[in-house]
Amino acid sequence: MRKSTIGIVILSIILVGLIIPMGFSGQVEPVVITYGETTHANTDYKNTVDNFFKTQANADMANAKTKIVTADEVNKISSSITGKTYTSGQIFSSALLDLNDNKELQVSVDKSKITTITGNMYISALKSSGITSGHVYVTSPVTATGESALAGIMNAYEEATNVKIPETVKEAANTEIYTQSEVVQNSNATADQISDLVDDVKETVKEENVTDHQTIVNIINNYTIVNNINISDSDIENLATSIEKIQNVQGDVNNFETEISTVLNNTTDSNAISDFLSGLTG
């Protein structure tokens, strides 16, 4: 009996050595919360946000890593895209990232508070960045567009995986969010219509490796006609510019996607071997 137990332990150690890379321990923080600095500074606001996360996410909030998203961080993005400048009293949107739910990318948005950016818009922008897994929850203590939340979500992924998202990729993804938001506000099209339109165009542009601006404009025009979406020529131009920007950073996106996939796949392997060892000792 003793020999059998020793044999199982040795086999387990060998399997661990084969599956889990050296130095992996502690590499991933499975749950990260990013608070807008206005929310974090106000106890009532923070409690409102935390209550949403507690009721919606099946996550270990007690051991979650937290980070504060400042107006300066948001302004680095928004000022170059929309020209908007926020103060430290205007950053409300907050997000929780749960990498334990790691099969596919999901985004759950508090629709009672986030008025413009939808879950599909966040998913589209995150996939443009090379992020394809994890469950994200987005809320705010007061009504907000949700535009600044993408900065927090990206910070959460960086904190969770210790993998830096290239600045070129961040800028392209944020341009996509802000542009879609503006188109929704400028037109009678719904947020989901614009999100689906952008996804269709991005897929075509990527498959055909299109980098020419006018060609992208023509593709957008074709999709608006087919799907009976009425948006202005200037909105089409802006969408084309944002999609062109995404296409131009595909090299950086691919490199980041490879790096983050390696980290997340190692996490999955770690969970699998843990389950295996529990089965042996249970």
Rank of each mutant, 00 (worst) to 15 (best):
residue 247 Q to K: 15
residue 243 I to R: 05
residue 72 D to P: 01
residue 90 Q to R: 07
residue 175 T to I: 04
residue 215 T to S: 13
residue 246 I to Y: 00
residue 190 T to Q: 06
residue 47 N to R: 14
residue 167 E to Y: 06
residue 115 T to H: 09
residue 81 I to P: 04
residue 215 T to K: 15
residue 146 G to A: 02
residue 169 V to A: 01
residue 229 I to P: 01
residue 87 T to F: 06
residue 3 K to T: 15
residue 75 N to F: 06
residue 227 N to F: 01
residue 64 A to P: 07
residue 94 S to M: 00
residue 137 Y to K: 11
residue 249 V to G: 08
residue 28 V to M: 08
residue 153 I to T: 05
residue 261 S to E: 11
residue 189 A to M: 13
residue 200 D to A: 15
residue 158 E to T: 15
residue 15 L to D: 04
residue 147 E to F: 09
residue 40 H to Y: 15
residue 69 V to R: 02
residue 131 I to R: 11
residue 87 T to N: 01
residue 188 N to S: 12
residue 171 E to W: 05
residue 45 Y to H: 02
residue 61 M to T: 13
residue 193 Q to C: 07
residue 27 Q to M: 14
residue 131 I to Y: 15
residue 220 I to L: 12
residue 195 S to L: 10
residue 230 N to A: 10
residue 34 T to P: 00
residue 83 G to F: 01
residue 189 A to H: 09
residue 51 N to P: 06
residue 55 T to Q: 04
residue 74 V to F: 08
residue 49 V to I: 05
residue 161 T to C: 11
residue 102 N to D: 10
residue 66 T to W: 01
residue 63 N to D: 13
residue 171 E to V: 12
residue 9 V to P: 00
residue 28 V to R: 05
residue 7 G to W: 12
residue 145 T to Y: 02
residue 135 H to G: 08
residue 278 S to E: 09
residue 167 E to L: 10
residue 88 S to L: 00
residue 248 N to Q: 13
residue 18 L to W: 08
residue 23 G to D: 05
residue 274 S to H: 02
residue 42 N to T: 04
residue 101 D to M: 09
residue 67 K to N: 05
residue 163 V to G: 01
residue 76 K to Y: 09
residue 281 T to Y: 15
residue 93 S to Y: 01
residue 52 F to T: 13
residue 211 T to V: 10
residue 89 G to W: 00
residue 61 M to H: 05
